[in-house]
Design a protein around this nucleic acid. Structure first.
Lengths: 347, 347
DNA sequence: CTTTAGCACTCGGGTCCACTGAGTGCTAAC
DNA sequence: GTTAGCACTCAGTGGACCCGAGTGCTAAAG
C-alpha cells in the first residue's frame, strides 16, 4: 500500500520492461512468468501489474492486451534498475574499425562518428559539432571575391573551418585585407570568439580618437564576420535515419512522417542537444523528456565529447523509447571517448 | 496496324497519362471518356488501350483494373506530348521569396535552392555543388594546426571553400607556409585545379636540377592538398525527403525504406547527376532510366546551373514517375536560372 | 493478509463469404 | 472502323464468426 515500490515489484517491472524491449509488444502476466523464473504465479503478477499501472509505470493499450511500460516506467528502469553492459574488446575493435581514422577533415570525422553510432546501435546517430562561438580563434583570412564581396575564412583551434560572405559598403584592397588579417591573427590568437569580439571593441574604444583608419576598417569587417546568425549553433549531422524504418513502432506511415519531419527540422534537435551539452557525460532523454512532440515515442542517449582545447560537442543515438539502453549507452560512451581521443591526436 | 501511333491514339494516351498523374490510380476506359470529351465511346478507348498496351506504353496491374502508364509511356509523353506550362509572374515571385537571397555562403545558397525546389514541387529537391576539380583556383592558404598537421584551405573562383587536413613527414615553419601559399597564389591564379596540377608538375620538372627547396616542399604539400579523394565530387544536398512520404505510391513501408536508403547512398545519386551535368539545360530521367533500382518508381528532372566562371553544377527534383512534368520542369528551370543569376551577382 | 486457482469477460486479429462496382474482352450490329 | 451489349474478372468492403491472449474478480488456500 505504500507509495514506495517493493523489491519484488521492482524485479517484476524490470522483467516486463526487458521483455518489452525484446518483443516490442505488450507483455502479459503469463509470458512474464514463463520467461523469468520468479517463483510467482501469473495471478500475482497481474495484481502487481495493476499496482504498477496505478503508479504510472505501465499502461494498457486496451483491456485485453498486455501492459506497455510508460515513459515514467522507462525512466525508473534507467535510473534504478539498469546495469550497463561492459563493452567487450571485440566491440571496441568494431567501433574503431567502423570509425575510419585516416587523417581527414573535422567534418568528415564527425559525420563518420554519426555513421558509427548508427551502424553499431541500428538506430539513428546524431552529432553536433562544437559551437563556433565557443571555439578558440586560430586564424582568419579574407579573400576578395569581387569589389564589394569578401569571403571571411575562419579557422578554429579544433581545425573547424567556417566561412562567411561579407558584403561591404566600401572597397577593400587586397593588401589592406592582408594587413587586417595579419593584425587580427596576431592580436586575437588563442582567444575564444566571444573574447575576440570583446577585445576588438576594447581596442576600438582605446584608439577611437586616433582615427586609426585600418583598425576601423578591420572592425567593420570583423563585426560582420563574427556576428552570429542562425548558422551559429554548430552543424548537426544526422546519420542512418532510415534505420528507423525497420522499427516496428514506426511501421505506421503517419508516425514515420512525423519522425522524418522532425529530422528535417534540425534546429529543434540542436536545441535539445545544446541542453545536454551543459552536463558532462551520458544523458538520457526518454519520450516526452525530449520536449519534441514528434519524438514522443523515441529516446535520445547522448554524451559530450571534447577537443583538447576544451570546446565541446555532443553526439548520441535517437531510437525508439524501447531501445536496449544497456547496450546503447556503452556505444555512445565509447564513441564519444574515441572521438575526443582522435580530435586530441589531430591537433 | 502500323507500328506508328495515330494522332487520335496520341490524344487518348495523353488523356490517360494526365488522368493518372492526377489520380495516382489505374485509369479505366469509361473514366477517360467522361473526363475528356473526345467524341469517342469507352469501347473504342478500350480497343486503343489494348493496342497501346501491346506497344508497351501502358500496362494493367490485373485484368479488371484500369491501365497504368509505363516508363516508356511517360517517356513518350514527355518527348512528344508535353506542353510545358508557362511560369506566371506570381510563381516567379514565390520562388524568389522562397529563395532567401541575403548575402551568405555558397553552401547556404545551394541548400536553399534545394529547399525551394522541394517546397515548390512538393517533392524532393537535390542540388549538386560544382565539382571542385572543375572550379578555378582563387586562393590557397595553409594553417598550421600542429607540427605535423597542416590544414589546407582552398577557395575557388565561385566562392566555394574546401579544406583538407594534411599529415606531413617533415615540419613546415609558419613563414615557410606563407611563402608557399604566396607562391602558389601568384602562379596558379585563375587556373582550374587540373591545370594547376599540370602547371606544378611542369614547374617541378623545369627546376628539378636547381634543387629549389621551397618549391619542392611546396609541391609535396599541394600534391596532397589537390589529390582527389571520395570527397572529390561536389557535395550533394538533398532537401525535403519527407515530402515523399505523402505520395500515395510510397505508402508501403518497404518502398519507403528503399527510397530513403537510396537517399543515404549519396554517391549513386551523385553519379546520376554527374551524367546530366554533361548536357546543358533540362534533362529528365524516368523510372529505370535513373539506373538505380531504388528509384524505379521515381523520376528525376534536372537542370544545370553555372557560375560566371563557367563551373557547373546540377540541381533537380526527385518525385514519383507520375509527377506533373509540365509544372515541375519550369520550377527546376527557373530555379537553376535564378541560382546562376545569384551566383553571378555574388562574385 | 498474501497468494493462488478458477472462471467469466473483453477485444484485436484472422478467416470465410457474399456483395459491389469498376473494369475488361469479345461479339455482333451499325 | 465504331459502338452497344453482355459475360466475366477481380480488388475491396463489411459482416459473421472464431480463436487466443489477456484481464479482473472472487473465493479458497497458505
Amino acid at each position: 500500500m505504500s507509495s514506495e515500490i517493493s523489491d519484488r515489484n521492482r524485479r517484476i517491472l524490470e522483467a516486463i520492461i526487458e521483455d518489452y524491449i525484446d518483443s516490442a509488444e505488450p507483455v502479459g502476466s503469463r509470458s512474464v512468468t514463463r520467461r523469468h523464473s520468479l517463483g510467482i504465479s501469473p495471478a500475482t503478477v497481474r495484481n502487481v501489474m495493476a499496482d504498477l499501472e496505478e503508479m504510472g509505470y505501465l499502461s494498457s493499450p486496451h483491456t485485453s492486451a498486455g501492459r506497455v511500460p510508460t515513459g515514467k516506467g522507462f525512466r525508473f528502469y534507467v535510473d534504478s534498475l539498469l546495469r550497463v553492459r561492459e563493452f567487450s574488446d571485440s566491440e571496441r575493435l568494431r567501433v574503431e574499425q567502423q570509425h575510419n581514422l585516416k587523417g581527414r577533415r573535422l567534418e568528415e570525422l564527425l559525420r563518420d562518428a554519426g555513421k558509427t553510432l548508427s551502424a553499431m546501435s541500428h538506430y539513428t546517430g546524431v552529432v553536433l559539432a562544437p559551437r563556433v562561438a565557443e571555439t578558440h580563434f586560430r586564424q582568419i583570412d579574407f579573400v576578395k571575391l569581387s569589389n564589394r564581396r569578401i569571403l571571411a575564412i575562419f579557422v578554429s583551434d579544433s581545425g573547424q573551418v567556417q566561412n562567411r560572405l561579407i558584403e561591404t559598403e566600401e572597397d577593400y584592397s587586397k593588401s589592406e585585407l592582408e594587413q587586417i588579417s595579419n593584425y587580427l591573427n596576431q592580436s586575437l590568437s588563442g582567444l575564444s570568439i566571444a573574447q575576440a569580439q570583446a577585445r576588438l571593441i576594447e581596442e576600438m574604444a582605446k584608439e577611437k580618437d586616433l582615427y586609426n583608419c585600418l583598425l576601423r576598417r578591420a572592425m567593420r569587417l570583423t563585426d560582420v564576420a563574427f556576428s552570429s546568425d542562425d548558422g551559429d549553433h554548430g552543424e548537426l549531422f544526422i546519420e542512418g535515419a532510415s534505420q528507423m524504418l525497420d522499427q516496428p513502432e514506426f511501421c505506421d506511415v503517419d508516425q514515420m512522417r512525423n519522425l522524418f519531419r522532425a529530422f528535417e527540422q534540425k534546429h529543434k534537435i540542436v536545441d535539445l542537444l545544446d541542453l545536454s551539452q551543459k552536463a558532462q557525460g551520458i544523458q538520457i532523454f526518454i519520450g516526452t523528456e525530449t520536449r519534441n512532440n514528434a519524438l514522443e515515442g523515441c529516446s535520445l542517449v547522448t554524451s559530450t565529447y571534447s577537443t583538447p582545447q576544451g570546446s565541446l560537442g555532443v553526439l548520441g543515438v535517437i531510437g525508439p523509447m524501447r531501445m536496449p539502453y544497456s547496450q546503447v549507452i556503452p556505444i555512445v560512451d565509447y564513441t564519444a571517448r574515441l572521438l575526443s581521443r582522435v580530435l586530441d591526436y589531430k591537433s
